[in-house]
Amino acid sequence: MSAMSTSRPMKWLLAVWIGTVLVFLYLPMAAIALASFSRQRYFRFPIPRFDTRWYEDAFTSLSVRDLLWTSLTVAAIVTVISVVLAFLGALAFARYDWKGRSVYQKLLLLPIFFPQAVLGLALLLWYSALGIPTSWMTAVFAHLVWILPIATLVISIQVYGFNPAWEEAARDLGASRWQVFREVTLPILWPGIFSGALFSFLLSWGNFPLSLFTTGADSTIPEWLYSKMVSGYTPLVPTLGTLTVVGAALLLLGAYTVIMLVRRSRQARATAEG
């Protein structure tokens, strides 16, 4: 319908523009991947010789394993807490009409707008004033300050599309509160909750500025990469960088598969029951 106001050459121009932006977005990641396969200690393009030795190094290195473990633990815990709190928060954000809602909505957005480096420093100050030693646990807390509002927003978008009459109808048809939640509310909101979880995990996994100041002696992968970038480049930097990119992409792909599988099994179930 809308295409009627867009001429053919205009469409081509826009398509070319999209392509350019995508190249712009993925070029640096491609550069990192290239570097990780270079045999040289220092990167040069075009690459004279390809090699996978840095990957072997990465997989066998104990410190890499530690980094991976820290990053994973932080991201996993952040995800669990953020999904629960953000789900409740999203209901307050988008579902119910209440007095302080407009203020609540705006307060919730503030941390997203806030420069993360400054937030990380403020939290460092906060921990030291309260006498809390910094470790990966304080990083979990720091990540949550920034990620909770984002997860709440993501889930809210799904909640906005939720018709309260669904719950009322279920209740009217005899369902108890728990049955309403299990049969109606949760299954309808689940895509939003799932994307909220995905966002939480990936944003925590890739976070650098908050981790930098709040992990103490522990270190996450982005932090370690940064320290190696500014002092003492090693080819492990592009290697590990590529691995995190691939990891994130695999997770997204896996999530996509899960969504498709759930959708299919739902349909299959409907067919079986019907």
Binding site: M29, W205, G206, L225, M229
Partner: peptide
Amino acid sequence: PLFVSENIRLFGWVLSLVKGGV
């Protein structure tokens, strides 16, 4: 790209722009 740590992506630009880079 949002889910890839910002400093990794910037480092990708370093490798792209640096003398002898991509």
